[in-house]
């Protein structure tokens, strides 16, 4: 008799436990759906390699990094990170409010990071690879960009700033 009880008990799932299991499964499904929708339907940007470049010999726009105006209020911004001088080039950028800026960032030597404070831009900068993200600046202010990927003794000194000014 006791054995039978034991089998029945082991099959029994407490209502609280069953609810826990349900909630966990629903949460997992929600998470999975959120990731999938964000990745594929909403087209969230990934700082994916926009193009490959030769880190020893940066040509084209990289010869003269900085801001390029494509049309009024739409900019491409080319930035190079460097671990000999621990600087971003350029260090200071100014755009009018309401601008949409595409950041193209690469490195001449080792891995760096590029994080634009107070925005959701954060990418790893890999030599030989151009990382790209786009952001629209609707508020006037100064946005610092800093290197987030440890790059040697001058890592902490590696920063720059983007200023958004009134039109």
């Amino acid at each position: 008799m006791s054995e039978q009880n034991a089998t029945q008990e082991s099959m029994h799932i407490d209502p609280y436990e069953r609810n826990w299991i349900r909630i966990s499964i629903i949460l997992l499904i929600v998470f999975a759906a959120a990731v999938t929708i964000a990745g594929f339907a909403l087209g969230f940007q990934v700082p994916s390699p926009e193009e490959r470049v030769d880190p020893n010999n940066l040509t084209g726009p990289w010869e003269n990094p900085g801001l390029r105006e494509l049309s009024p209020g739409v900019y491409d911004l080319y930035i190079i990170g460097n671990a000999t001088t621990w600087q971003f080039e350029p260090r200071e950028v100014e755009v009018p409010v309401g601008s949409t800026v595409s950041f193209y960032v690469t490195s001449t030597d080792i891995q760096h990071g590029f994080k634009l404070q107070d925005t959701n831009i954060n990418m790893q900068i890999v030599p030989g690879q151009v990382s790209k993200l786009t952001y629209t600046f609707d508020e006037v202010g100064t946005y610092d960009y800093i290197c987030t990927e440890y790059c040697g003794v001058g890592h902490a000194a590696m920063f720059g700033s983007l200023t958004v000014v009134e039109k």
């Binding site: 671990a83 000999t84 001088t85 030597d109 080792i110 440890y150 040697g152 003794v153 001058g154």
Partner: peptide, 28 residues
């Protein structure tokens, strides 16, 4: 520091230890 690096400095004994992070990312 890398050749030409402006932060090349004489490190103390305390600073004379591995400095690449525990993850030691290459190419750094």
């Amino acid at each position: 520091a890398p050749e030409g690096g402006f932060l090349a400095e004489e490190a103390s004994r305390l600073g004379s230890a591995p400095n690449g992070g525990w993850f030691g990312y290459a190419p750094n």
